[in-house]
Simulated scan of single mutants.
Amino acid sequence: MGISFGETLGALREDLRRNIFFKSKLILTLFRLANFFACRSKLTLFAGLPLIFFYIAICEWVLGVEIPVKTKIGKGLVIHHGVGLVINGFCEIGDHCVVRHGVTIGNTILADGSVSGVPTIGDHVEFGANSIVLGAVRVGDRARIGAGAVVTKDIPDGAVAVGVPARVLDGHSI
């Protein structure tokens, strides 16, 4: 069995508490419900197909936010604006993270044509607008990724990463 309905409601309550924009609340409400149906069992996946298709139509096609229904996202996610937000369905995102518009969290195509692993994001991570995290990297707890940064290497806990390619700023731990 996958996630419980109680866990889903708890995560949704925390999401709604932390988000101020209607659009973000709508995206996260639809995501949490679609995620429950998609991850609970094959029976709930089949029963939830209409809701899952509705989620995809509204969030991806209309609102421009791509978060696959089976993505593992901790409670309290905050989405600021969200347009152009792309999260790979195999990555894992911790609790209380903040993402802004244009953020991409995903994999890369390697020189031999294979696909890299996906990022693992810790708790309380904040992503600046248009930041990108690619490949099998870990972004540590309480890290901040600056606007426009391209992360291709691990970022330690509490670090601030900026630039292309991203580098950790010395003395700027939080």
Rank of each mutant, 00 (worst) to 15 (best):
I20T: 08
D123F: 00
V150S: 12
P119S: 12
K70S: 15
F90Q: 13
G122I: 04
R144F: 12
L169D: 00
G102E: 00
A129Q: 10
G146T: 12
D154K: 04
Y55D: 01
V103I: 07
I87L: 11
V115A: 08
F90D: 10
R40G: 03
I132A: 04
E7I: 01
G135I: 09
F54T: 10
G135W: 02
R13H: 07
I145A: 13
K75M: 10
F127P: 14
N35P: 02
I52F: 00
V98F: 14
E60D: 03
L16H: 07
S173D: 15
P119V: 01
H172C: 15
I145F: 07
A111E: 13
F5V: 09
M1N: 14
G89S: 00
V98D: 10
E7M: 01
R17W: 12
E66I: 10
R40M: 08
V65H: 03
R32G: 01
G135Q: 05
F46S: 13
R18N: 13
L43R: 14
G117K: 04
I56W: 11
G10Y: 06
K72L: 03
I56V: 11
L30Q: 11
V69S: 09
E7R: 04
R142T: 12
L45A: 14
G148Q: 01
V86I: 09
G140D: 06
G171F: 10
D154M: 04
N88K: 09
L169M: 10
F31G: 03
I20S: 15
S116C: 01
V62T: 11
A129K: 05
H96R: 15
C97A: 04
E7V: 00
A129V: 14
H80C: 12
S41R: 02
T108N: 14
K70Q: 11
S4D: 00
I67S: 00
R167V: 15
T44E: 07
V99D: 06
R144V: 13
G84F: 00
G82S: 12
F127H: 05
D154R: 00
A129G: 06
I105C: 04
F5W: 14
V65E: 02
L28D: 03
S24N: 02
N19M: 03
C97N: 12
C91A: 15
G48H: 00
A34E: 09
F53R: 15
P68L: 09
G82Q: 08
R142V: 14
E60H: 12
I155R: 02
F46W: 12
V69E: 15
T108Y: 02
P119C: 04
I145V: 15
G94P: 07
V99F: 06
L43A: 14
F53D: 11
I105L: 13
S173F: 15
E60W: 05
I79G: 02
E66K: 06
A143Q: 02
D123K: 14
L33T: 05
I79D: 00
G148L: 05
C39Q: 11
R144N: 03
L110F: 00
G84Q: 02
K23G: 13
R167C: 08
T152A: 06
A166L: 09
T104C: 10
F37M: 08
D95M: 12
G140H: 13
L16C: 09
G94K: 05
G122V: 07
A57Q: 06
G171K: 04
I3E: 13
L16D: 01
D154V: 06
L45T: 09
L85G: 00
G148N: 02
G102Y: 05
D157H: 10
F53E: 15
